[in-house]
């Protein structure tokens, strides 16, 4: 699934906070969404997330992304509705929406290399930080490959469109994707080595510092979550 990331030019929302504080806020938001139980609370939390997304000016991208996600949410709703009841199904669907939208918001304001560099600066080994960065960078590439495989198979008459019948043919989608992903990983590793990945003494171009506002927002978020849990 395509997850948008901020463009190379850093937006004000992206630059306002340190990537590490954004990561902490995201983790706390996920805990909050998991902790909430009632549909009303989850609806309110979802509304806050959507307002934040609109606030950073990525509403249109979010709508496109939501269109893709809606199928998964509806399927999830149907499964829970069939196995439990309507209220539980609404709660489950809202929780899924909330969790995925938190990730959308995080990646909309955080570039993968910012996050990786900040973590490396905090002591994470460079190779581990790079795995984070490369994995996130390749989400759109894999998404593109998925589209190409999907079209290639449908062009041969394999019904991958919709419905239960399509599930039977999913190996036709996953097998080429799996093979391509291994190849992609190989090519990426070659390219990285060829450009000095393994060298020591690397320069980190950006230096990151947790400022007062980072600490303030993290403390506020921890406090808010604590209240939510003990109430």
């Amino acid at each position: 699934m395509y997850v948008p990331t901020v463009s190379a030019g850093r937006s004000s929302a992206s630059a306002m906070f340190d990537p590490r504080s954004k990561l902490v806020l995201t983790v706390l938001a996920i805990v909050a969404v998991i902790t909430l139980h009632s549909a009303i609370e989850l609806g309110a939390a979802y509304a806050v997330i959507v307002l934040s997304i609109l606030g950073i000016g990525t509403g249109r991208t979010y709508l496109r992304w939501l269109r893709i996600l809606s199928v998964m949410v509806l399927v999830w709703f149907a499964i829970v509705w069939l196995t439990a009841d309507t209220v539980t199904a609404i709660t489950a669907a809202l929780r899924l929406l909330g969790l995925t939208s938190v990730f959308f918001l995080f990646f909309a304001v955080t570039r993968p290399e910012e996050l990786a560099d900040a973590l490396v600066q905090s002591g994470m080994p460079y190779s581990a930080g790079f795995v984070v960065r490369a994995a996130l960078q390749f989400v759109p590439v894999v998404s593109h490959n998925t589209g190409a495989v999907y079209d290639a198979q449908r062009a041969r008459g394999i019904p991958l469109d919709r419905g239960i019948r399509a599930l039977r043919h999913y190996p036709a989608l996953f097998a080429p994707l799996l093979v391509q992903s291994f190849r992609l990983a190989d090519h990426l590793a070659e390219a990285m080595e060829s450009r000095g990945f393994g060298r020591s003494g690397r320069t980190l171009r950006h230096s990151y510092r947790l400022r007062l506002r980072d600490w303030a927002v993290m403390l506020a978020a921890v406090g808010g979550l604590a209240l939510l849990i003990v109430k």
């Binding site: 290399e113 590439v141 190849r183």
Partner: peptide
């Protein structure tokens, strides 16, 4: 520089 350029990019911008 190998074949398949799209498989050799691992940064978010041309600058990086």
């Amino acid at each position: 520089v190998l074949q398949q350029p799209s498989a050799q990019f691992f940064c978010g911008s041309v600058y990086d």
